[in-house]
Design a protein around this nucleic acid. Structure first.
Length: 620
RNA sequence: GCCGGUGUAGCUCAGAGGUAGAGCAGCUGUUUCGUAAACAGCAGGUCGAGGGUUCGAAUCCCCCCGCCGGCUCCA
């Protein structure tokens, strides 16, 4: 199970179809489909592509000795990579952008043609990156585009004139290796955002700001949920009391659902002797992601990057009969993985995290029902967290490098498909994208901002049962190899928490909220009654606090609102007298006077039903 | 790891060779207040670490460490 912890930002770029026109060999003019026949996506793709050319032109005007590499359209805009004599500054970006706007205003035609490779080699004689690209092109002609004085090697997909590129802004500059290869030169990449209209661009920029506002690192600090202490270990999370309350709710639900679904819970060690990792193959294939070994009594011990080898030991501790299968072993197992320092990101990409890991070991004819059970469990629990939109991706057997028998792969893939069909989940298929040891389904959940996060995964493993010689005695009295499935629902508790924080912008649903209600006495003489109110809520196991400080009521309300506490119970003379509270909800505002018992019932019911907030918290 | 940026009070930030500042938070006091910020006072810092230049360094130089944005998108 190599990829529970996926890329921090796993939003998959909506790779537009390049749809390169075939080169008419006898016609040097580079024909492109007329603009008015294009879908909006293709049009946008062309706008972004053309803007990249305009960008390159502007940069090369400022740095005539600069080299340019590649500049494709991307999800929200475009970029272009350059090799320049000095690093670009924010002021440079402004100058570049001004020049780009000039070119766009001049509205010059963008023209393409096919030219012989030799001619291209002459044109780009002092452009090493272009020459490298030309050498890799198989045809005898290559695409060549120009507008005004600027020319570029390019297979096409452009607007007709520079005035047609839409609304854009340059966003940032960063380093990027030539061809994504860290052994090759580091280039400077200039990014731009581009949309057909200013309104759409503004909406995109606003969405970026919103995402920044929801950043779990910032909310985690403001809401006192967690911290990191870089000087004592980058990528390691410290859960504060309030964050731990949320985690406990996540874990309680998880344990309850897993016991209900027939899993057995286990605990396994955090470290094991090198021999275990040799047998599992991790030291051969996964060593670069493992913490360095520690010496214990003269042999090497490794922190575990995965739980599977331990669960396998539990399975193998007895001779297993087919009557015992399926065996489902589940653990909230904390693992440590060495992630490169530059990739660490808050709770979303860390070096120590708790996997909600389970291994199902079963016979071939149990496989399908087991997988269906897993998918149903996933959807039920993800739904409880408010993730109703889930996308699935089925990855099948790679063409070449794989272990195990083809029949077993076929059975496994069929069962994964069947589970997706039986749960009526929409899915796409990534042919040949499975791991070498088995096919899998990855689940992306979609958050309030429309971002997709890969969390859950079900993954067959034809490798470890072999390596550890797992077996069971079947009805025929012979030992057989069982099927083994890894699966994780949250993936990583840390990561899932980070996603939850961003999804809800910190306003977690009441059942998850660290503080579910704050009692606000108006004056000191109401503190005693506030205690009565608190006790009434606490008696129903609600997480409640009294704000007995010297602030005025308005300030206490503000504090509770900023802490995103779902309910505020204001108590003054009237309430103390009438055994009531004045109820306020963080999203609904003042709900007016309410008898204490009724208020308690309301809050407890919302907790028990795991209700989402009545009003759209999501919208900002 | 690499490229660029960045690191000053718990938080957000100002200070750009002459001995460290604001707002918020905290503490103390006064106020006892009806649905998103009462008022006053006090305290708070080896300016990320180490080394160097200088009469003098938060400020300039070197070297570490951390954080932030990227490093997948193939003419």
């Amino acid at each position: 199970m190599a990829s529970e912890q996926e890329r921090a930002m796993s939003n998959r770029p909506g790779e537009p179809d390049l749809d390169a026109p075939e080169a008419p060999p006898d016609d040097s003019h580079h024909d492109e489909a007329p603009l008015d026949t294009l879908s909006p996506e293709e049009r946008l793709f062309r706008m972004r592509h053309s803007a990249a050319h305009v960008l390159a032109e502007a940069v090369l005007e400022l740095f005539p000795e600069g080299k340019y590499a590649i500049g494709p359209p991307i999800e929200h805009g475009f970029y272009y990579d350059f090799d320049l004599p000095r690093p670009l500054t924010p002021e440079d970006l402004e100058r570049i952008e001004r020049r780009m706007r000039r070119t766009i205003k001049r509205n010059v035609p963008i023209e393409g043609q096919w030219i012989p490779r030799d001619e291209a080699r002459e044109i780009f004689a002092d452009q090493p990156y272009k020459l490298e690209l030309i050498d890799e092109i198989d045809d005898e002609t290559v695409g060549y585009f120009r507008h005004a004085e600027f020319d570029d090697l390019c297979e096409g997909g452009h607007m007709e004139r520079t005035g047609q590129v839409g609304a854009f802004t340059l966003t940032h500059v960063s380093g990027a290796y030539w061809r994504g290869d860290e052994r090759r030169p580091m280039l400077q990449r200039v990014y731009g955002a581009l949309f057909p209209t200013q309104e759409e661009l503004d909406a995109h920029l606003a969405a970026r700001e919103e995402a920044e506002r929801r950043d779990h690192r910032r909310l985690g600090r403001e809401l006192d949920l967690f911290s990191t202490h870089e000087e004592y270990g980058p990528g390691l999370i410290y859960w504060h009391p309030k964050g731990a309350r949320v985690r406990l709710e996540m874990e309680d639900l998880w344990r309850h659902e897993h016991l209900e679904a027939g899993y057995e819970l286990v605990f396994t060690p955090h470290t094991g002797r090198a021999t275990l990792w040799e047998q599992s193959g991790h030291l051969d294939f996964y060593a670069e992601s493992m913490y360095s070994p520690m010496d214990v009594d003269g042999s090497d011990f490794y922190m575990k990057p995965m739980n599977c080898p331990f669960h396998i030991q539990i399975y193998k501790n007895a001779l297993r009969s087919y009557r015992e299968l399926p065996v489902r072993l589940a653990e909230l197992g904390t693992v440590y993985r060495y992630e490169r320092s530059g990739t660490l990101h808050g709770m979303l990409r860390v070096r120590g995290f708790t996997q909600d890991d389970a291994h199902i070991i079963c016979t071939p004819d149990q496989v399908e029902d087991e997988i269906v059970g897993v998918v149903e469990l996933f959807l039920r629990v993800l739904g409880a967290f408010g993730f109703d939109e889930v996308r699935a991706r089925l990855s099948t057997r790679p063409e070449e490098k794989y272990v195990g028998a083809v029949e077993d792969w076929d059975l496994a893939e069929a069962s994964l498909r069947a589970a997706l069909e039986r749960t009526a989940l929409e899915y796409e298929v990534d042919e040949g994208e499975g791991a070498f040891y088995g096919p899998k389904i990855d689940f992306d959940l979609v958050d309030a901002l429309g971002r997709a996060w890969q969390c859950s995964t079900v993954q067959f493993d034809f490798n470890l049962p072999e390596r550890f010689e797992m077996g069971y005695i079947a009805e025929d009295g012979q030992e057989h190899r069982p099927f083994m499935v890894h699966r994780a629902l949250y993936g990583s508790i840390e990561r899932f928490m980070g996603i939850l924080i961003e999804h809800y912008a910190g306003a977690l649903p009441l059942w998850l909220a660290p503080v579910q209600a704050t009692v606000i006495p108006i004056a000191d003489r109401h503190v005693e009654y506030a205690g009565t109110v608190r006790d009434a809520l606490a008696a129903r196991r609600l997480r409640v606090e009294v704000d007995a400080g010297g602030d005025r009521m308005g300030a206490k309300i503000r504090k509770a609102q900023l802490q995103k506490v779902p309910y505020m119970l204001v108590v003054g003379d009237r309430e103390a007298e009438g055994h009531a509270v004045s109820l306020r909800h963080r999203a609904l505002g003042d709900l007016g006077p309410t008898p204490l018992a009724e208020a308690v019932d309301r809050v407890a019911r919302e907790r028990d039903e795991r209700s989402p907030d009545p009003e759209a918290e999501q919208e900002a």
